[in-house]
Amino acid sequence: MKQTEFLNLVLPFKDKLFRLSKRLLVSTEEAEDATQEVLLKLWSKNSKMKEYKNVEAFAMTMTKNFCLDRLKSKQASNLKLVHSNYGDDTNSLQKNIEAKDSVNWVEIIMDELPEQQKMVLQLRDIEQYTFEEIEELLDMKPTAIRVALSRARKTVREKLTQKHNYGIA
């Protein structure tokens, strides 16, 4: 497969890979590195590419596994992920309560979710994958997906109303 062919194949979903890895790794730089790594891995497998029926699903699963490994190794080595992305947002949140800041709150709330719920919510509500696709991507049972999704959504709602009721604590 030629380089341009590969890029065209990857183009429609590379942003999805990036957003999923950012959801899991939080830091933009980490996510960029992860996405790059996954795409390069994919490129190195490029001769076998035609055997995969769904390259996008395959790449998403690769991203998921890569990021989870990454998180595991970070935890094992007792290193915290460096993320400076939303540090400023918290500051501005303390100053003014605007609708825009509540939107940022959703991101922070999502960061607090367990990884599996994070992924399900990301894939469903942001990327709008169907349940069948999510089953394949995350290798989960349909009921487990529904439970995780429902919990994730309810947690976001709960924390969001809390923030609204108490203001910004």
Binding site: D15, R19, Q36, L39, V103, N104, I126, E127
Partner: peptide, 21 residues
């Protein structure tokens, strides 16, 4: 509202890093 708004804006984020292919 912020919940759904966030989902929409989060979808706009893009991977801009160049691939050293």
């Amino acid at each position: 509202k912020p919940m759904f708004q966030y989902f929409s804006t989060a979808k706009e984020e893009q991977f801009t890093k160049k691939l050293p292919l």
